[in-house]
């Protein structure tokens, strides 16, 4: 998501007086988000805390988070993109027909009230969750929302931030961007990184049966992927690194038990606003860490001939 208008959670805590959660349920999925970073905190700029902040929740059903919201907007399922587009048009003063507005499940008054509040805010922040990015429209929804955020900056300060999920998924994005230039869906089969989600993304690769070995670390695709993908994982040699027995490790050829990160393995993890946080492990695990095992596999592979037909790694030749 290059070019996204964003900030850290610290800034949200200090300054954001208008907060929208779109397609997420922080009360149940990110329980301390409200109290630690967003609506409940008092700060120099918002001394009255909750009273100085307005929170809007946009979702297709009334979740537990709706109780915490000042305004709950219930929209029709799959109409996120339409609503974002209507908002983008209306904030710039373009006309929008009644039929289009009715389609989203909201009334014109509600949308106009939302827009005046957005424009009237000193510092607005839009958090978007899987309800936006994993439903009809997928990444087009996220892109539209990021455009809306960028365009809001013609009127006031506005930022957006994805509500990233469990574990260190943000770290995976950051590390892959740092090392390869791309966040996910990468192929090295030409010797340099290429990016093409849909072709190189795991579900598609597995369903088509394109890979002939799999190395799974810190994930359990055997529990989340569609059945044809799981069948392919069972067919090919699968190697799993996990502290526990998982659905995937049951069908794997090789399972190496590793120390659970955070609890027993030291290192770094990224917060959802892409801030690296050091880990402080409490326990000493009898198992090796992920890092150590992957490094040793790397070393073992380096001793074998390189995969090019002549067995040699390409060399950079100096020219005069």
């Amino acid at each position: 998501m290059g070019g996204k208008v964003t900030c850290t959670l610290g800034e949200v805590k200090q300054r954001a007086d208008f907060i929208i959660y779109w397609g997420g349920n922080p009360a149940e999925c990110h329980p301390r988000h409200f109290t630690k970073y967003t609506i409940m905190q008092k700060s120099k700029f918002l001394p009255r805390g909750r009273k100085d902040r307005t929170m809007v929740l946009v979702d297709i059903r009334e979740t537990k988070s709706a109780k915490a919201a000042d305004i709950f907007l219930r929209i029709r399922p799959g109409k996120d993109f339409e609503l974002i587009t209507i908002l983008r048009a209306l904030i710039k003063g373009h006309p929008v027909g009644d039929d289009e507005i009715a389609e989203t499940g909201l009334s014109r008054e509600v949308i106009e009230d939302l827009i005046s509040r957005m424009k009237g805010a000193k510092f607005g922040c839009l958090f978007f969750g899987m309800g936006l990015s994993m439903t009809r429209g997928k990444h087009m929804n996220s892109a539209a929302l990021l455009y809306l955020t960028a365009e809001m900056n013609a009127f006031t300060k506005f930022v957006a931030m994805p509500m990233r999920g469990h574990g260190n998924v943000t770290g995976a994005d950051v590390i892959m961007r740092w090392q390869t230039g791309f966040p996910f869906g990468i192929s090295f089969n030409r010797g340099y990184p290429r990016y093409n989600p849909g072709e190189f993304s795991t579900v598609d690769v597995l369903v088509r049966g394109d890979c002939d070995a799999a190395f799974i670390i810190g994930a359990d695709p055997g529990a989340t992927m569609p059945q044809p993908a799981i069948d392919h994982l069972a067919r090919i040699p699968t190697i799993v690194l996990d502290p526990h027995v998982t659905h995937t490790s049951r069908l794997a050829r090789v399972h190496i038990t590793t120390a659970p990160q955070v609890i027993a393995a030291p290192g770094t993890a990224y917060r959802m606003d892409e801030l690296p946080m050091p880990l402080k492990p409490a326990l000493k695990s009898p198992y090796p860490t992920d890092e150590e095992v992957v490094r040793r596999i790397n070393e073992a592979i380096a001793k074998k001939p390189f995969w090019l037909p002549d067995g040699n790694q390409p060399q950079i030749v100096a020219t005069k």
Binding site: G165, G171, A172, Q179, F184, S187, R295, N298, I301
Partner: peptide, 29 residues
């Protein structure tokens, strides 16, 4: 594939692994 529940240090090793193998690299995202 994966890298959700692991440290950044291990993730970096995974990128090196895919690079060395000339293989595919992907995460939960």
């Amino acid at each position: 594939y994966g890298m959700s529940n692991t440290t950044c240090e291990a993730q970096k090793e995974c990128v090196a692994l895919a690079d060395q193998l000339g293989g595919l690299l992907d995460s939960h995202t």
